[in-house]
Amino acid sequence: MKIAVCVKRVPDSEARIKIGADKTSIDESGVKFVLNTYDEYAVEEALKLKEAAGSGEVVIVSVGSEAAKETIRTALAMGADRGVLLEADAVGLDPLPVARALAAELKDGGYDLILFGKLASDDYSHAVGVMVAELLELPCASAATKLEIADGKGIAEREIEGGVEVVEFALPAVVTADKGLNEPRYPALRGIMMAKKKPLEVKDAALDAGGVEIVLLTLPAERKKGRIVGEGADAVPALVDALRNEAKVL
């Protein structure tokens, strides 16, 4: 099985976000960057499928700056075979140019399956994987919490409001991973050492401009200072009164 996994370098979810001097991006100083959490599920799923098939190749592809090499190495350390960096100095907020660059790279790769995380925890677009499927005219199941692949066919489950959709498709296909799909492995020391020697090809991403102009990046508005209405169950009537008469939400 030949599987591509598209990954992104993002700030660690624990990172405190500060706004940069240009007021249109974050201040990256002191911020730790990691492999996007949802991409870890995608990498894990690819490795499991390759292991189950007994042979194959898992290729990690990322659009990003040179620093994204480190992110690709993380996925290689988990067990992927090789990496491709589509290098771009700046990746904008319109997902379509990114999807186009990935689609161009993946188009003739002969992949049975192309996996993504369902979203990147920086821009939260939930879009690039689905767009790549559309551009390549491949079947796609997004936000999968379960995936079964057998005999050239796939069945994925995705959580929707009040239920679970069961999606059937034939390979080749695109699947984006949600939490719950699997438990990603940690790279072992041996994997980390081996990753350094695995091939990592760098190409120019040639992103087009897209249709999103950043006006401003701000911290979210501070919430109005609240108050403790009291201690213990005796405070319940005061809370209910405040919710009814002050906040008017009951």
Binding site: L93, D94, P95, A99, S125, A143
Partner: peptide, 23 residues
């Protein structure tokens, strides 16, 4: 931006070749 919309919006944007702003 529901489970359906998060899947459908990027599909429509890709088919139209246009910008998407999600959620």
């Amino acid at each position: 931006a529901t489970a359906m919309g998060k899947d459908l919006a990027p599909r429509v944007a890709a088919r139209l070749g246009c910008t998407l702003a999600a959620d």
